[in-house]
Amino acid sequence: MFSKKMVMIVGVIALIVVNIIILSVNSSRYSSYGSFSYEYGRTAIFFIAPFQKPVTQFVQFLKKIWGHYFFLVSVIKENDNLKKTISHTIDKNNKYREIEISNFRLRNLLNFRKTITSQVIVAEVIGQDPSPWFKTIIIDKGKSDGVEKGLPVVVPEGIAGQVIDVSCNYSKVLLIIDRNSAVDALVQRTRDRGLIKGQSDGRCLSKYVLRKHDIKVGDTVVSSGLDGVFPKGLRVGYVSKIVKPDSGIFQEVTVTPYIDFEKLEEVLVVLDPPKHDFLSE
């Protein structure tokens, strides 16, 4: 009566309709506990979950291995980069600190420069004497900057020395602690004169100071300006020891300079020191 083709079409349509009805019924009762899908779903979980757990754990384990070991290659790189950054930062920080210290020192020098009426030039210490027996320094200013032989060299702490040799761009300075150095000085409090000579131990000796003079340890010694080299009133050092021998008319006065010559970095060269006109008659 019905052709085979007709039966097949009706069957497919019926199947689609039934399917739609089931889906719509199921979707409206999805949360109900007594549903078919829930019952069988739970059974499926019961059987599958035990297998899922170790597999998941294994996957997690593999992920951990990847993350902690294989992935460390990139971490190492990152670590290296961070280390480099830290190193650069430390280096920069050190530079800034150095600039800060240098700034403080130069400000100090500038303030001192303002107090000196003479014309001065700032010079940097670039070398020291090759021998421990002599105390000289090399500075980076020479003839081209107006430096001449015999000019005084000072720092805020006091007198540093005297230019003894000049080349075009560099000069050699004899420090006051050298044996060959001599500065005419006086004790600030008592105005007693003496000749400051360098000694082997890095200190100075005030020579030709009369025994009768009342000099005490701690007194400040300043330049007298009478030597025609150093401006008057610049600090030389302080009296650190006094020896009055049993005989003789002089006392031995040891003067410790205020300057730490080991740490001398910048100095001022006085370009027009006070000059004395001696009558040559």
Partner: peptide, 19 residues
């Protein structure tokens, strides 16, 4: 040689110890 040259110019009181 250095000490002799310094000695000729007159050593100071601390010279021996330092030397």
């Amino acid at each position: 040689i250095f000490i002799v040259s310094i000695f000729m110019s007159g050593p100071d009181s601390q010279f021996l110890t330092i030397t």
